[in-house]
Design a protein around this nucleic acid. Structure first.
Lengths: 210, 210
DNA sequence: CTGCTTATGTGACAGGTATCACATACCATT
DNA sequence: AATGGTATGTGATACCTGTCACATAAGCAG
């Protein structure tokens, strides 16, 4: 399949002329699983569209602790790379490929140019911010109000939704994403297994409820 | 001062024709301090621009617990009321007037109409989302990584920045905003007073450091 | 099969914070 | 000045979760 038709399929809301521009100036990047794609601390000079694979976004603090925020899927753009275009705050957001990923990177100057030129791009940018804003609100609510067991459940469900009932993550991975510790996660997951919610395997778990 | 010139002053980036439209279709609402202005749970049919006073945005959960997110000042719009235009998720965001507030409310249908018609409105909407998105990221980072003493410091500094060195809030108010309890806040503030950061008064405190 | 590496299980303990109980202090009103 | 209502101070206690120590189990390489 050509890049053009793939773009059309993944981003169906854009204008025909814009597809052509994207193809012309965009650079396809293939990134293996586990690569750090961007960090807010470093100035970013490109906007990224995800064509294939899953990218994970998380906050990182000074001591290297992480907190999982959300996934970016094919057909979505990285709101952070759009934010970075402008002023840079201290918050250290990091994007990492969870699977092998295919990105389309566009130099930042086109971001503004296209905002001037294409209505569809405008809507796309607004849509991206809007949905990410909502997602962040939900995350705030989770951390602010819920205990670890509830947050773990919410987290696991998100992973299952993204990757299917059989999710390949160690307890340590999960603990990192929730800024918790392995032992806590192991204990809570054991409890979930006893309650018949999941099966625990080595390096993975399986959601067997709902 | 006329509404028009006030608009121009507060929202200097908009187009002349748009100012006129806003004046024509917008409704000025004066809201006393302490009023709940919007809740995501209820469908919202207007976009709100703040002309005067301070609006506070916070998350609320089922049991009525709150978590302070950010302030909306004159010259800013409520990103939530823009989000609400579209799909509605479970998260219950509430906006409340902290001081007496003057709002300009615009029926939601103009949101889209103006996006079609005015470039400046597009930029304004994007700017609003972008800055709120950044703010939310910082909030996530605070709750995820910091203990109550650090979050309290961050919170108090924001209040000081917004209202000046002398802030009128009881310990109970603060505890509500941070989803903590009065006793905890009292103890931590006592410690801050001992360290020479603040003076504690009845119903208020005073920032005396930095 | 054996041993090595990594993942998971589990008890003991510690620190942070929520909760309860109650004391004290401040302010407005009479 | 006395009273009542509200705000603040403070100890005791309990729960949640992070940490340490170590045991057990699963998979891989030889």
């Amino acid at each position: 399949m050509s890049d053009l038709s793939k773009l059309r399929e993944l981003f169906p809301e854009l204008e025909e002329e814009l597809y052509n521009e994207i193809i012309q100036v965009g650079v396809i990047k293939e990134v293996p699983a586990g690569t750090t794609i961007l960090q807010v601390a470093q100035p970013i000079r490109t906007v990224m569209l995800v064509l294939d694979g899953v990218v994970k976004l998380y906050q990182e603090d000074d001591e290297g602790d992480e907190y999982f925020i959300y996934h970016i899927e094919p057909g979505q753009a990285c709101a952070v790379s759009m934010v970075c275009a402008y002023k840079q705050e201290k918050s250290t957001v990091t994007a990492k490929s969870v699977t092998d990923v295919v990105l389309l990177t566009v130099p930042l100057e086109y971001m503004d140019k296209w905002l001037q030129k294409y209505k569809s791009w405008h809507y796309f940018v607004i849509k991206t911010y809007r949905s990410r804003y909502e997602e962040l609100l939900r995350t705030v609510s989770e951390i602010a109000f819920r205990n670890m067991d509830e947050r773990l459940e919410f987290y696991l469900k998100r992973q299952v939704k993204q990757f299917g009932k059989h999710v390949k993550l160690t307890h340590q991975d999960i603990a990192n994403d929730l800024n918790s510790s392995r032992e806590v996660i192991s204990r809570l997951m054991k409890k979930m297994e006893k309650n018949g919610w999941i099966n625990i395997h080595r390096n993975s778990f399986e959601w067997i409820r709902d």
